[in-house]
Design a protein around this nucleic acid. Structure first.
Lengths: 216, 216
DNA sequence: TACCCTGCAGAACGTCCGTTCTGATTTCCT
DNA sequence: AGGAAATCAGAACGGACGTTCTGCAGGGTA
Protein backbone atom coordinates (compact mmCIF):
# COMPACT_ATOMS: atom_id res chain seq x y z
CA UNK A 1 0.00 0.00 0.00
CA UNK A 2 1.78 3.10 -1.27
CA UNK A 3 2.18 6.12 0.94
CA UNK A 4 -0.79 8.45 0.78
CA UNK A 5 -0.39 11.94 -0.65
CA UNK A 6 -1.30 15.08 1.27
CA UNK A 7 -4.25 15.74 -1.00
CA UNK A 8 -5.53 12.21 -0.62
CA UNK A 9 -5.20 12.34 3.14
CA UNK A 10 -7.14 15.60 3.10
CA UNK A 11 -9.93 14.03 1.09
CA UNK A 12 -10.00 10.93 3.27
CA UNK A 13 -10.26 13.05 6.40
CA UNK A 14 -13.11 15.02 4.91
CA UNK A 15 -14.94 11.83 3.94
CA UNK A 16 -14.75 10.54 7.49
CA UNK A 17 -15.81 13.86 8.97
CA UNK A 18 -18.71 14.28 6.55
CA UNK A 19 -19.88 10.73 7.09
CA UNK A 20 -19.82 11.26 10.84
CA UNK A 21 -22.63 13.86 10.90
CA UNK A 22 -24.76 12.84 7.96
CA UNK A 23 -24.63 9.13 7.32
CA UNK A 24 -24.18 9.45 3.60
CA UNK A 25 -21.20 10.49 1.56
CA UNK A 26 -20.41 13.84 -0.04
CA UNK A 27 -20.72 14.40 -3.77
CA UNK A 28 -17.61 15.05 -5.79
CA UNK A 29 -18.44 18.74 -5.97
CA UNK A 30 -18.82 18.91 -2.19
CA UNK A 31 -15.40 17.35 -1.80
CA UNK A 32 -14.05 19.84 -4.28
CA UNK A 33 -15.46 22.76 -2.30
CA UNK A 34 -14.43 21.49 1.11
CA UNK A 35 -10.87 20.70 0.10
CA UNK A 36 -10.37 23.82 -1.96
CA UNK A 37 -9.81 21.96 -5.20
CA UNK A 38 -10.34 23.80 -8.44
CA UNK A 39 -11.81 21.02 -10.55
CA UNK A 40 -14.04 17.99 -10.16
CA UNK A 41 -11.63 16.06 -12.32
CA UNK A 42 -8.94 16.42 -9.68
CA UNK A 43 -11.27 14.99 -7.10
CA UNK A 44 -12.11 12.13 -9.39
CA UNK A 45 -8.44 11.59 -10.10
CA UNK A 46 -7.57 11.32 -6.42
CA UNK A 47 -10.58 9.18 -5.63
CA UNK A 48 -9.37 6.73 -8.27
CA UNK A 49 -6.01 6.54 -6.56
CA UNK A 50 -7.63 6.08 -3.17
CA UNK A 51 -9.69 3.25 -4.59
CA UNK A 52 -6.68 1.67 -6.29
CA UNK A 53 -4.86 1.68 -2.96
CA UNK A 54 -7.77 0.10 -1.16
CA UNK A 55 -8.82 3.01 1.03
CA UNK A 56 -12.27 3.41 -0.44
CA UNK A 57 -14.67 1.57 -2.73
CA UNK A 58 -16.74 3.25 -5.44
CA UNK A 59 -19.70 2.25 -7.57
CA UNK A 60 -19.58 3.79 -11.05
CA UNK A 61 -22.27 6.24 -12.11
CA UNK A 62 -23.90 6.26 -8.71
CA UNK A 63 -24.15 9.43 -6.68
CA UNK A 64 -22.33 9.53 -3.37
CA UNK A 65 -21.45 5.86 -3.67
CA UNK A 66 -18.17 6.04 -1.81
CA UNK A 67 -17.54 3.47 0.89
CA UNK A 68 -14.77 3.65 3.44
CA UNK A 69 -12.99 0.31 3.72
CA UNK A 70 -10.76 -1.01 6.49
CA UNK A 71 -11.76 2.05 8.39
CA UNK A 72 -12.75 2.71 11.97
CA UNK A 73 -16.08 1.34 10.82
CA UNK A 74 -14.49 -2.08 11.04
CA UNK A 75 -14.33 -1.65 14.81
CA UNK A 76 -18.03 -1.20 15.05
CA UNK A 77 -19.16 -3.88 17.42
CA UNK A 78 -22.59 -4.79 18.58
CA UNK A 79 -22.79 -4.10 22.27
CA UNK A 80 -25.43 -4.36 24.94
CA UNK A 81 -26.53 -1.01 26.32
CA UNK A 82 -27.04 -1.05 30.07
CA UNK A 83 -28.62 1.85 31.95
CA UNK A 84 -26.80 3.25 34.95
CA UNK A 85 -29.52 3.55 37.56
CA UNK A 86 -27.55 5.19 40.34
CA UNK A 87 -24.99 4.41 42.98
CA UNK A 88 -24.43 1.70 45.50
CA UNK A 89 -22.82 2.57 48.82
CA UNK A 90 -22.49 0.80 52.12
CA UNK A 91 -25.02 2.79 54.08
CA UNK A 92 -27.46 3.76 51.34
CA UNK A 93 -30.39 1.80 49.96
CA UNK A 94 -29.72 0.11 46.66
CA UNK A 95 -31.53 1.77 43.74
CA UNK A 96 -34.29 -0.47 42.45
CA UNK A 97 -34.93 -0.77 38.73
CA UNK A 98 -38.48 0.14 37.84
CA UNK A 99 -40.32 -2.01 35.34
CA UNK A 100 -39.18 -1.38 31.80
CA UNK A 101 -36.23 0.68 32.91
CA UNK A 102 -33.65 -1.65 31.45
CA UNK A 103 -33.11 -1.03 27.78
CA UNK A 104 -34.23 1.54 25.28
CA UNK A 105 -34.64 4.32 27.78
CA UNK A 106 -32.20 6.83 26.47
CA UNK A 107 -32.98 9.40 29.14
CA UNK A 108 -30.65 8.04 31.74
CA UNK A 109 -26.96 7.52 31.48
CA UNK A 110 -25.92 4.24 30.03
CA UNK A 111 -22.96 2.02 29.52
CA UNK A 112 -21.98 -0.26 26.68
CA UNK A 113 -20.98 -3.73 27.63
CA UNK A 114 -18.36 -5.22 25.32
CA UNK A 115 -19.13 -8.70 23.96
CA UNK A 116 -16.43 -10.24 26.13
CA UNK A 117 -18.30 -9.20 29.26
CA UNK A 118 -21.80 -9.79 27.98
CA UNK A 119 -23.71 -12.78 29.36
CA UNK A 120 -25.80 -14.98 27.10
CA UNK A 121 -28.97 -13.35 28.33
CA UNK A 122 -28.99 -9.58 28.28
CA UNK A 123 -32.40 -9.13 29.88
CA UNK A 124 -32.89 -7.13 33.04
CA UNK A 125 -29.39 -5.79 33.18
CA UNK A 126 -28.55 -2.54 34.91
CA UNK A 127 -25.46 -0.88 36.31
CA UNK A 128 -24.58 0.91 39.54
CA UNK A 129 -21.69 3.16 40.39
CA UNK A 130 -19.80 2.14 43.52
CA UNK A 131 -19.31 4.80 46.16
CA UNK A 132 -16.77 4.31 48.89
CA UNK A 133 -14.43 1.55 49.92
CA UNK A 134 -16.81 -0.69 51.84
CA UNK A 135 -16.85 -3.40 49.21
CA UNK A 136 -13.14 -3.75 48.86
CA UNK A 137 -13.39 -7.29 50.17
CA UNK A 138 -15.27 -8.09 46.96
CA UNK A 139 -12.42 -6.57 44.95
CA UNK A 140 -14.68 -3.66 44.14
CA UNK A 141 -13.58 -0.16 44.97
CA UNK A 142 -14.72 3.43 44.80
CA UNK A 143 -15.64 4.51 41.27
CA UNK A 144 -16.11 1.02 39.91
CA UNK A 145 -19.19 0.20 37.92
CA UNK A 146 -20.95 -3.05 38.71
CA UNK A 147 -23.29 -4.59 36.15
CA UNK A 148 -26.17 -6.53 37.67
CA UNK A 149 -29.00 -8.69 36.52
CA UNK A 150 -32.13 -8.00 38.50
CA UNK A 151 -33.06 -10.97 40.72
CA UNK A 152 -34.72 -11.49 44.07
CA UNK A 153 -32.92 -14.73 44.85
CA UNK A 154 -29.72 -16.49 43.90
CA UNK A 155 -28.16 -19.89 43.61
CA UNK A 156 -25.32 -20.87 45.88
CA UNK A 157 -22.00 -19.42 44.85
CA UNK A 158 -23.37 -16.55 42.83
CA UNK A 159 -22.24 -13.06 43.64
CA UNK A 160 -25.12 -10.84 44.63
CA UNK A 161 -25.86 -7.28 45.55
CA UNK A 162 -27.83 -7.51 48.76
CA UNK A 163 -29.30 -5.31 51.44
CA UNK A 164 -28.74 -6.48 55.00
CA UNK A 165 -31.68 -5.17 56.98
CA UNK A 166 -30.07 -5.87 60.36
CA UNK A 167 -26.94 -3.88 59.62
CA UNK A 168 -28.80 -1.48 57.30
CA UNK A 169 -26.04 -1.99 54.78
CA UNK A 170 -25.61 -2.73 51.10
CA UNK A 171 -22.99 -5.29 50.17
CA UNK A 172 -21.58 -7.43 47.39
CA UNK A 173 -20.90 -11.01 48.42
CA UNK A 174 -21.02 -14.59 47.24
CA UNK A 175 -24.30 -16.10 48.31
CA UNK A 176 -24.81 -19.44 50.10
CA UNK A 177 -28.15 -20.46 51.56
CA UNK A 178 -27.62 -22.80 54.52
CA UNK A 179 -30.88 -23.85 56.13
CA UNK A 180 -32.38 -20.75 57.65
CA UNK A 181 -29.24 -18.72 57.40
CA UNK A 182 -27.38 -17.13 54.56
CA UNK A 183 -23.61 -17.23 54.48
CA UNK A 184 -22.06 -14.29 52.61
CA UNK A 185 -18.49 -14.88 51.45
CA UNK A 186 -16.12 -12.12 50.42
CA UNK A 187 -14.40 -12.64 47.09
CA UNK A 188 -11.12 -12.18 48.89
CA UNK A 189 -10.47 -15.64 50.33
CA UNK A 190 -8.44 -14.25 53.21
CA UNK A 191 -11.43 -12.50 54.72
CA UNK A 192 -14.11 -13.89 56.97
CA UNK A 193 -17.63 -14.78 55.85
CA UNK A 194 -20.66 -13.44 57.67
CA UNK A 195 -23.75 -15.47 58.50
CA UNK A 196 -27.14 -13.82 58.89
CA UNK A 197 -30.77 -15.03 59.04
CA UNK A 198 -32.13 -15.58 55.53
CA UNK A 199 -35.06 -13.24 56.11
CA UNK A 200 -32.75 -10.35 56.87
CA UNK A 201 -31.10 -10.54 53.42
CA UNK A 202 -32.74 -8.94 50.43
CA UNK A 203 -31.11 -9.91 47.19
CA UNK A 204 -31.37 -7.13 44.61
CA UNK A 205 -29.43 -8.62 41.76
CA UNK A 206 -26.64 -10.88 40.61
CA UNK A 207 -23.32 -9.37 39.70
CA UNK A 208 -22.53 -9.94 36.05
CA UNK A 209 -19.45 -7.82 35.51
CA UNK A 210 -17.28 -5.15 37.06
CA UNK A 211 -15.63 -2.37 35.14
CA UNK A 212 -13.06 0.09 36.37
CA UNK A 213 -11.56 3.12 34.70
CA UNK A 214 -8.19 3.93 36.23
CA UNK A 215 -7.27 7.57 36.40
CA UNK A 216 -4.44 8.49 34.10
CA UNK B 1 -46.29 7.20 16.03
CA UNK B 2 -49.00 6.00 13.68
CA UNK B 3 -49.11 2.41 12.54
CA UNK B 4 -46.99 1.83 9.47
CA UNK B 5 -48.62 0.90 6.16
CA UNK B 6 -47.71 -2.22 4.20
CA UNK B 7 -46.11 -0.18 1.48
CA UNK B 8 -44.07 1.82 3.95
CA UNK B 9 -42.92 -1.33 5.74
CA UNK B 10 -41.90 -2.74 2.39
CA UNK B 11 -39.84 0.33 1.60
CA UNK B 12 -38.27 0.38 5.05
CA UNK B 13 -37.27 -3.27 4.73
CA UNK B 14 -35.70 -2.59 1.36
CA UNK B 15 -33.78 0.38 2.72
CA UNK B 16 -32.29 -1.75 5.48
CA UNK B 17 -31.45 -4.59 3.13
CA UNK B 18 -29.89 -2.29 0.54
CA UNK B 19 -27.88 -0.45 3.15
CA UNK B 20 -26.56 -3.74 4.50
CA UNK B 21 -24.63 -4.67 1.31
CA UNK B 22 -23.62 -1.31 -0.01
CA UNK B 23 -23.21 1.27 2.68
CA UNK B 24 -25.11 3.96 0.87
CA UNK B 25 -28.81 4.36 0.24
CA UNK B 26 -30.83 3.55 -2.88
CA UNK B 27 -32.14 6.24 -5.18
CA UNK B 28 -35.86 6.82 -5.44
CA UNK B 29 -35.96 4.99 -8.76
CA UNK B 30 -34.16 2.00 -7.28
CA UNK B 31 -36.74 1.86 -4.51
CA UNK B 32 -39.45 2.12 -7.13
CA UNK B 33 -38.01 -0.81 -9.07
CA UNK B 34 -37.32 -3.02 -6.05
CA UNK B 35 -40.75 -2.52 -4.53
CA UNK B 36 -42.67 -2.79 -7.78
CA UNK B 37 -44.04 0.73 -7.61
CA UNK B 38 -45.21 2.37 -10.79
CA UNK B 39 -44.14 5.94 -10.13
CA UNK B 40 -41.38 7.84 -8.43
CA UNK B 41 -43.97 10.15 -6.97
CA UNK B 42 -45.44 7.28 -4.99
CA UNK B 43 -42.03 6.53 -3.54
CA UNK B 44 -41.58 10.18 -2.66
CA UNK B 45 -45.04 10.28 -1.14
CA UNK B 46 -44.34 7.33 1.13
CA UNK B 47 -40.88 8.55 2.04
CA UNK B 48 -42.48 11.78 3.19
CA UNK B 49 -44.77 9.83 5.47
CA UNK B 50 -41.90 7.75 6.80
CA UNK B 51 -40.00 10.93 7.57
CA UNK B 52 -43.03 12.55 9.20
CA UNK B 53 -43.36 9.52 11.49
CA UNK B 54 -39.72 9.60 12.44
CA UNK B 55 -38.54 6.41 10.76
CA UNK B 56 -36.11 8.09 8.40
CA UNK B 57 -34.47 11.45 7.86
CA UNK B 58 -34.02 13.07 4.44
CA UNK B 59 -31.98 15.96 3.08
CA UNK B 60 -33.77 17.82 0.28
CA UNK B 61 -32.28 17.82 -3.22
CA UNK B 62 -29.48 15.49 -2.25
CA UNK B 63 -29.16 12.12 -3.91
CA UNK B 64 -29.51 9.04 -1.74
CA UNK B 65 -29.64 11.18 1.37
CA UNK B 66 -31.90 8.90 3.38
CA UNK B 67 -30.86 8.10 6.92
CA UNK B 68 -32.38 5.37 9.05
CA UNK B 69 -33.14 6.63 12.55
CA UNK B 70 -33.77 4.70 15.73
CA UNK B 71 -32.70 1.57 13.99
CA UNK B 72 -30.93 -1.51 15.32
CA UNK B 73 -27.85 0.31 14.18
CA UNK B 74 -28.21 2.35 17.34
CA UNK B 75 -26.50 -0.31 19.43
CA UNK B 76 -23.54 -0.40 17.13
CA UNK B 77 -20.86 1.41 19.03
CA UNK B 78 -17.38 2.30 18.02
CA UNK B 79 -14.96 0.54 20.30
CA UNK B 80 -11.23 0.29 20.59
CA UNK B 81 -9.83 -3.18 19.95
CA UNK B 82 -7.08 -4.15 22.34
CA UNK B 83 -4.96 -7.29 21.89
CA UNK B 84 -4.63 -9.67 24.82
CA UNK B 85 -0.93 -10.41 24.93
CA UNK B 86 -0.88 -12.96 27.71
CA UNK B 87 -1.12 -13.26 31.45
CA UNK B 88 0.32 -11.44 34.41
CA UNK B 89 1.03 -13.38 37.58
CA UNK B 90 3.06 -12.67 40.68
CA UNK B 91 6.01 -14.91 39.94
CA UNK B 92 6.08 -14.80 36.16
CA UNK B 93 7.69 -12.23 33.89
CA UNK B 94 5.29 -9.74 32.38
CA UNK B 95 4.70 -10.31 28.66
CA UNK B 96 6.26 -7.55 26.63
CA UNK B 97 4.46 -6.10 23.62
CA UNK B 98 6.55 -6.35 20.49
CA UNK B 99 6.63 -3.38 18.16
CA UNK B 100 3.48 -3.02 16.13
CA UNK B 101 1.66 -5.61 18.15
CA UNK B 102 -1.01 -3.26 19.38
CA UNK B 103 -3.79 -2.82 16.90
CA UNK B 104 -4.75 -4.42 13.65
CA UNK B 105 -3.15 -7.76 14.40
CA UNK B 106 -6.14 -10.02 14.30
CA UNK B 107 -4.15 -13.16 14.98
CA UNK B 108 -4.16 -12.90 18.71
CA UNK B 109 -7.10 -12.75 21.00
CA UNK B 110 -8.49 -9.30 21.52
CA UNK B 111 -10.89 -7.34 23.62
CA UNK B 112 -13.18 -4.47 22.82
CA UNK B 113 -13.01 -1.54 25.13
CA UNK B 114 -16.33 0.29 25.50
CA UNK B 115 -16.22 4.07 25.05
CA UNK B 116 -16.79 4.64 28.75
CA UNK B 117 -13.50 2.95 29.54
CA UNK B 118 -11.53 4.24 26.59
CA UNK B 119 -8.89 6.88 27.25
CA UNK B 120 -8.45 9.85 24.91
CA UNK B 121 -5.40 8.27 23.38
CA UNK B 122 -5.80 4.68 22.25
CA UNK B 123 -2.21 4.15 21.17
CA UNK B 124 -0.04 1.40 22.57
CA UNK B 125 -2.81 -0.30 24.49
CA UNK B 126 -2.71 -3.98 25.35
CA UNK B 127 -4.38 -6.25 27.82
CA UNK B 128 -3.23 -8.98 30.20
CA UNK B 129 -5.16 -11.66 31.99
CA UNK B 130 -4.56 -11.78 35.73
CA UNK B 131 -3.57 -15.12 37.22
CA UNK B 132 -3.78 -15.71 40.95
CA UNK B 133 -4.64 -13.58 43.93
CA UNK B 134 -1.36 -11.76 44.44
CA UNK B 135 -2.70 -8.41 43.26
CA UNK B 136 -5.75 -8.35 45.43
CA UNK B 137 -4.38 -5.33 47.25
CA UNK B 138 -4.86 -3.45 43.96
CA UNK B 139 -8.47 -4.64 43.86
CA UNK B 140 -7.53 -6.94 41.02
CA UNK B 141 -8.22 -10.63 41.32
CA UNK B 142 -7.83 -13.90 39.48
CA UNK B 143 -9.43 -13.83 36.04
CA UNK B 144 -9.57 -10.06 35.72
CA UNK B 145 -8.34 -8.40 32.59
CA UNK B 146 -6.16 -5.33 32.98
CA UNK B 147 -5.78 -2.90 30.10
CA UNK B 148 -2.41 -1.21 29.96
CA UNK B 149 -0.70 1.46 27.96
CA UNK B 150 2.87 0.58 27.23
CA UNK B 151 5.28 2.87 29.11
CA UNK B 152 8.72 2.59 30.63
CA UNK B 153 8.14 5.26 33.24
CA UNK B 154 5.26 6.89 35.05
CA UNK B 155 4.23 10.06 36.79
CA UNK B 156 3.56 10.04 40.49
CA UNK B 157 0.20 8.61 41.41
CA UNK B 158 -0.32 6.60 38.27
CA UNK B 159 -1.03 2.92 38.59
CA UNK B 160 1.58 0.83 36.86
CA UNK B 161 2.37 -2.76 36.09
CA UNK B 162 5.94 -3.25 37.24
CA UNK B 163 8.51 -5.97 37.65
CA UNK B 164 10.42 -5.93 40.89
CA UNK B 165 13.79 -7.44 40.10
CA UNK B 166 14.74 -7.90 43.77
CA UNK B 167 11.64 -9.89 44.63
CA UNK B 168 11.37 -11.35 41.12
CA UNK B 169 7.75 -10.41 41.18
CA UNK B 170 5.19 -8.69 38.98
CA UNK B 171 2.82 -6.27 40.68
CA UNK B 172 0.22 -3.56 40.15
CA UNK B 173 0.72 -0.52 42.32
CA UNK B 174 0.43 3.25 42.41
CA UNK B 175 3.82 4.70 41.57
CA UNK B 176 5.67 7.43 43.48
CA UNK B 177 9.27 8.32 42.74
CA UNK B 178 10.97 9.64 45.87
CA UNK B 179 14.60 10.50 45.26
CA UNK B 180 16.40 7.27 44.56
CA UNK B 181 13.59 5.09 45.78
CA UNK B 182 10.19 4.20 44.46
CA UNK B 183 7.26 3.93 46.78
CA UNK B 184 4.58 1.52 45.57
CA UNK B 185 1.16 2.05 47.14
CA UNK B 186 -1.61 -0.52 47.07
CA UNK B 187 -4.97 0.74 45.89
CA UNK B 188 -6.42 -0.52 49.13
CA UNK B 189 -5.66 2.31 51.55
CA UNK B 190 -5.57 -0.03 54.53
CA UNK B 191 -2.51 -1.85 53.25
CA UNK B 192 1.12 -0.92 53.60
CA UNK B 193 3.23 0.60 50.83
CA UNK B 194 6.57 -0.87 49.88
CA UNK B 195 9.68 1.12 49.11
CA UNK B 196 12.40 -0.22 46.83
CA UNK B 197 15.38 1.27 45.00
CA UNK B 198 14.33 2.94 41.77
CA UNK B 199 16.69 0.83 39.68
CA UNK B 200 15.08 -2.37 40.85
CA UNK B 201 11.68 -1.38 39.45
CA UNK B 202 10.93 -1.87 35.78
CA UNK B 203 7.72 -0.20 34.73
CA UNK B 204 6.01 -2.08 31.90
CA UNK B 205 2.87 -0.04 31.47
CA UNK B 206 0.24 2.16 33.01
CA UNK B 207 -3.05 0.64 34.02
CA UNK B 208 -5.89 2.16 32.01
CA UNK B 209 -8.82 -0.04 32.95
CA UNK B 210 -9.81 -3.24 34.67
CA UNK B 211 -12.59 -5.52 33.51
CA UNK B 212 -14.04 -8.50 35.30
CA UNK B 213 -16.56 -11.06 34.16
CA UNK B 214 -18.28 -12.60 37.16
CA UNK B 215 -19.27 -16.24 36.82
CA UNK B 216 -23.00 -16.73 36.63
C1' DT C 1 17.25 18.43 -24.35
C1' DA C 2 13.69 15.11 -25.09
C1' DC C 3 10.55 12.15 -22.84
C1' DC C 4 7.49 10.34 -19.57
C1' DC C 5 4.91 10.26 -15.33
C1' DT C 6 2.35 12.55 -11.80
C1' DG C 7 -0.75 16.03 -10.41
C1' DC C 8 -3.80 19.80 -11.60
C1' DA C 9 -7.24 23.14 -14.25
C1' DG C 10 -11.29 24.07 -16.99
C1' DA C 11 -15.10 22.90 -19.51
C1' DA C 12 -18.58 20.22 -21.52
C1' DC C 13 -21.64 16.03 -21.92
C1' DG C 14 -25.08 12.98 -20.72
C1' DT C 15 -27.30 10.78 -17.32
C1' DC C 16 -29.00 10.35 -12.64
C1' DC C 17 -32.33 11.82 -9.58
C1' DG C 18 -35.28 14.65 -6.48
C1' DT C 19 -39.26 17.31 -7.13
C1' DT C 20 -43.67 18.78 -8.69
C1' DC C 21 -48.05 19.01 -11.19
C1' DT C 22 -52.30 16.89 -12.82
C1' DG C 23 -55.40 13.56 -12.51
C1' DA C 24 -57.08 8.77 -11.54
C1' DT C 25 -58.29 5.19 -8.17
C1' DT C 26 -59.15 3.36 -3.75
C1' DT C 27 -60.49 3.56 1.13
C1' DC C 28 -63.10 5.08 4.75
C1' DC C 29 -66.63 7.49 7.24
C1' DT C 30 -71.35 9.20 7.78
C1' DA D 1 -74.81 6.61 -1.70
C1' DG D 2 -71.88 10.54 -1.45
C1' DG D 3 -67.94 13.01 -0.32
C1' DA D 4 -63.51 13.65 1.74
C1' DA D 5 -59.08 11.90 2.50
C1' DA D 6 -55.54 8.75 1.40
C1' DT D 7 -52.95 6.46 -2.10
C1' DC D 8 -51.30 5.86 -6.60
C1' DA D 9 -50.05 6.78 -11.91
C1' DG D 10 -47.71 9.20 -15.44
C1' DA D 11 -45.02 12.67 -17.15
C1' DA D 12 -42.07 16.42 -17.28
C1' DC D 13 -38.70 19.95 -15.35
C1' DG D 14 -34.39 21.29 -13.78
C1' DG D 15 -30.66 20.79 -11.05
C1' DA D 16 -27.23 17.47 -9.21
C1' DC D 17 -23.59 14.63 -10.32
C1' DG D 18 -20.26 11.26 -12.28
C1' DT D 19 -17.48 11.08 -16.23
C1' DT D 20 -14.40 12.37 -19.81
C1' DC D 21 -11.55 15.16 -22.89
C1' DT D 22 -7.99 18.58 -23.65
C1' DG D 23 -4.31 21.04 -22.05
C1' DC D 24 -0.73 22.79 -18.67
C1' DA D 25 3.09 22.62 -15.13
C1' DG D 26 6.67 20.52 -12.47
C1' DG D 27 10.13 16.67 -11.73
C1' DG D 28 12.76 13.02 -12.49
C1' DT D 29 15.59 10.23 -15.93
C1' DA D 30 18.24 8.71 -20.00
Amino acid sequence: MPAISTRQQQILDFLREYHADRSYMPSIREIQLACGISSTSVVDYNLRLLERDGHIRRSPDISRAIELVGDSEADLVEVARVPILGAIAAGEPIPVPEAGAYAGDDDRESLSLPPELTPRDTDNLYALRVKGYSMIDACVTDGDIVVLRHARDARNGEMVAAWLSMQEEATLKHFYLEGENVRLMPANPSMEPIVVPADSVQVHGKVVAVMRRVAA
